[in-house]
Amino acid sequence: MEVLTETGISLLSSALFVLLAWIFSKTARRFARGIAAHMLHLDTEEVFANGGEAGPDIKRELNRARTVFIFTSRGAELQRETFAEMIARSHSRRCHCRIMLPQLTVPAGEVDWIADREAELHDFDSAFGTDLLRRQVAATYDYLSPLLVPGHLEVRGYNIPHLGRVVATERVLYLTPYSADRHGSSSPVIKYRRGQTYDVLMRLMDKIWTASSP
């Protein structure tokens, strides 16, 4: 019995050690990347494997932000917990949030970029191909519509290629580059602090916002 007990304790200790090593090694890797970025004068603060991993960090930044800019495709994530406090703060005029979604109706002669992205999604996800993406974007518009507050929570439509998602505050910017062979939620998320990359991307977002329609 003593042998079994000692063996059990040994196995438990080993499992605990492996778990702690994994947790702290992840933290250490992030710390090392941050130090390297500062030494090399890079403005990359963190790289997350996917949207799920980035979610808690994005939520923390949004919950303390005074200004927020969001450029996204289907926008389903706006209905989730990550963005709930930000939307509530915008609705109570404690945060100014601008959101850009794909334009649902495209004038004759212009490229329909929702259809273009849907074709990409259909190649690896058979659920798409029947205008599902457009219906998902429409659902996001419907969700946000009663929450709009002029000057505090605003939405505009764009008609340019769906190449990525941007979530930015006055302090940081998260870029999720979209790929033609995976969903955006499965793509890496790059977090930038204020710097050259932040400034270039925000200048681009401001130009797109100005050229877009409410």
Rank of each mutant, 00 (worst) to 15 (best):
H162D: 00
L12E: 06
I9T: 06
Y178K: 07
Y143T: 14
M39I: 15
D142F: 00
L20P: 02
Y198S: 10
L148S: 05
E170H: 07
R30E: 07
L153W: 10
V149C: 12
D57P: 02
L4N: 05
E120C: 11
D112F: 00
L133F: 06
A37D: 03
L163M: 13
C95H: 05
S13Q: 14
P146Y: 08
I9G: 01
V172I: 12
Y141G: 08
S185P: 00
T72Q: 10
S14M: 11
S212C: 04
W113V: 11
G51D: 01
P177E: 06
L62G: 02
R93E: 08
T130V: 07
G129Q: 04
T82P: 13
L204R: 11
F124I: 07
A49H: 03
Y141C: 09
R134C: 10
T44Y: 03
E110L: 09
N63E: 10
W113M: 11
H38C: 05
L104N: 07
T27P: 00
T27Q: 07
R117E: 10
Y141R: 08
L11I: 11
F24S: 12
Y198K: 08
G75E: 07
R89P: 02
Y143R: 12
A138N: 00
H183Y: 14
G75F: 04
R98F: 09
V167N: 03
T140M: 09
K191A: 04
S92K: 08
L40H: 04
N159S: 15
S10G: 15
I190E: 04
I58H: 12
F24N: 14
R29W: 03
P146R: 10
T140Y: 06
E45G: 06
P102Y: 04
V18D: 02
G129S: 02
K26D: 07
V155Q: 02
L16H: 00
V137R: 00
D123G: 06
